[in-house]
Design a protein around this nucleic acid. Structure first.
Length: 202
DNA sequence: ATGGGGATCGTCT
DNA sequence: GACGATCCCCATC
């Protein structure tokens, strides 16, 4: 119980990692907010040689974490106001990552709601706190400061905790949300969900 | 329940 | 200079 997923878990085929992350617990021990966590219910794989991946056209300043070590956070800023959280996978020389798209909120729910209050955004019902990649970042107090953070250090403040595996019968895969890059990238079923979860995006 | 548009800025062409 | 691995609000049905 309470084992943290270690680097070998992430240093594997990206699609397997995306599938097996379902049901695991993402934890952030935020110095100000305290212990925040949720069960992963929706993921997307961004694979090597994937036209929809930020790494597809080579290394740049933004995507540098994807070229780093498996188990690192890759956090990017999008639409001028949102962050999205990925975990780097596969081998160091083959850039790939899993986007975490939705969580079932578990611990620190009052602090999650607090994190959403920025003067513009209204408080959310629990169901909406982590439903979507940008919403879960906001609720878990994840931002630019954690870009490149290693989730696999023994004293890490952000990590994935092992939970009971989710059976194949509870899982489905679909095309990814809002990606570009040609029919192969559009059609590939590289988004994994826990079918009956009420906490999915979209 | 569903759909359109605005917000807002870092990144790459 | 364009646009994005998004979200929220409001209008309409």
């Amino acid at each position: 119980m309470c084992a943290r997923l270690s680097r070998p878990f992430f240093a594997r085929d990206t699609r397997s990692v995306a599938r097996e992350l379902l049901g695991m617990r993402l934890v952030h021990l935020d110095p100000a907010a305290g212990r925040l966590s949720g069960i992963i219910v929706e993921t997307e794989a961004y694979c090597p040689n994937d036209a929809a991946s930020h790494a597809f056209r080579g290394q740049t300043a933004r995507n540098t974490p994807m070229f780093g070590v498996a188990g690192m956070a890759y956090i990017y800023f999008i639409y001028g106001m949102h962050f999205c959280f990925n975990i780097v996978t596969d081998l160091a020389t083959v850039p790939a990552a899993v986007l975490i798209r939705a969580l079932e909120p578990r611990e620190g729910i009052p602090a999650m709601s607090l994190g959403r209050i920025d003067g513009k955004t209204k408080p959310h019902a629990i169901r909406g706190l982590c439903r979507g990649p940008a919403r879960l970042c906001k609720s878990l107090w994840i931002d630019r400061a954690l870009n490149g953070y290693d989730l696999c250090q023994t004293d890490s403040l952000m990590y994935v905790e092992e939970e009971a595996p989710v059976a194949d019968t509870e899982v489905a895969c679909t095309p990814r949300i809002r990606v570009r890059g040609g029919s192969e990238a559009l059609d590939a079923c590289w988004r994994w969900i826990i079918k009956e979860s009420p906490y999915l995006s979209k």
